[in-house]
Design a protein around this nucleic acid. Structure first.
Lengths: 218, 218
DNA sequence: TCAGAGGCGTACCGTACGGTACGGTTCGTT
DNA sequence: AACGAACCGTACCGTACGGTACGCCTCTGA
């Protein structure tokens, strides 16, 4: 019994994972370069095997996206014993992880692929990325926000709005510009400012939702 | 590479605009449905004419996106004599227009198309959408922000950050979710909340950058 | 009335790629 | 050793679609 990694009910053998890695590499290297022939050649396997394992091109694509997306795990933040300082650090950590993931080649590629897919009534990939992207973030951030609320460090009517505001403050127009291929946004360019951006976004979030804020949404 | 985007009414004849309309309709109806044959049939013209007018498929796509994107004109806001109330109304108007455009079928389709295109090293469409989307917004919003600053109604170090924060506060995760095909975000669903969202975003923006804000980014 | 331009519709070509078939090879099991 | 399952490599098929060619129609202007 070979070691397998379980991803949402789907298990992949190491060999299969090598294939998925090849597929992902091809995607990142060259967005439309994911032809079955190219994957087979890159992974040194036969097309027949690809079809046997993944059904069809769509299945391979889905498996690739799903497998990779699930690998993006953001560190869980310690929720217990929430001091003001700890909360702030947690939020900053979150912002940093979020930004780092979003500007990565893999994320850009996966989002582009899923969006392309969604443009054809096949929203399967879109839903996967959605679930592992924005929704995943939301799921992890929400308890922290509510812990902050319970600790009287944050004030908001519902955590949904608070999460979405935080998302907006952190991501701003970076993601859409990257997806559209804005050449003025080099990765190194963003990385250089990432700490400043993280701090700014967190400051702004606390200005809006921190208990000491005079202005607060109702 | 001087990417000049100039779409005058004289650039395309009415007949050509009819063709572009057909192409856009096909795009919106069915993202990948833009085949040359389909456009020709829909517009009741010959493929040869399409190639004569637009060069190749890419040219047709570019013309379509360019033509439509340039049609999205947000109202210029009167900048002179800027009262606090006028500024706020301007910002709200901006937020409303921005949200309205972004959740529209056409915008979603165009962004998806451009992103798909950008996934293939051909960032031409991406740049066009970028220019008419985020960058266009930035160009129109910036003078208003600076007028607000001059009138001592807003306070910020540079208008770039202020614009991007506003963008984030307004758009949040709506655009990426729509692009990914999030089925829980129906258009009517968003439209129902659009006024509340607009007000919330504007409130938050003024809380962060208004002169009366106690917390302000440095 | 005629000529030419512009344009429609259709047929056609080439190619890229998804998907299948098959012979040959490796490897595990008995 | 013998057998079979899994798999590799390659050749092959069908189709969809980008792009071209061409015959015919319509409209315009002299």
């Amino acid at each position: 019994m070979p070691l397998t990694i379980k991803v949402n009910e789907e298990t992949f053998t190491p060999r299969q994972q090598a294939v998925l890695t090849a597929a992902l590499d091809l995607l990142v290297e060259n967005g439309d370069g994911l032809t079955m022939t190219a994957v087979a050649r890159r992974a040194s396997c036969s097309k027949e095997t690809l079809y046997k394992w993944f059904g069809d091109r769509d299945g391979l694509l889905t498996a690739t996206v799903q497998w990779q997306a699930a690998k993006v795990r953001m560190p869980q933040v310690d929720r217990s014993h929430l001091s003001a300082k700890a909360l702030r650090l947690s939020m900053e950590q979150f912002a940093r992880d979020l930004l780092t993931v979003i500007i990565g080649d893999v994320s850009v590629t996966l989002n582009r692929t899923a969006i392309t897919h969604a443009a054809q009534e096949k929203d399967r990939l879109g839903l996967i990325v959605l679930e592992n992207g924005p929704m995943g973030i939301r799921r992890r951030l929400k308890p922290i926000l509510e812990a902050g609320k319970d600790a009287r460090l944050l004030r908001f009517a519902n955590s949904e709005d608070a999460y979405r505001t935080f998302f907006g403050l952190v991501v701003r127009d970076v993601q859409i510009r990257l997806l559209l291929g804005d050449s003025t946004l080099t990765q190194s360019n963003i990385e250089a400012n990432i700490e400043a951006d993280v701090k700014a976004a967190t400051d702004q979030f606390f200005a809006l939702y921190g208990v000491e804020a005079t202005h607060n949404r109702e």
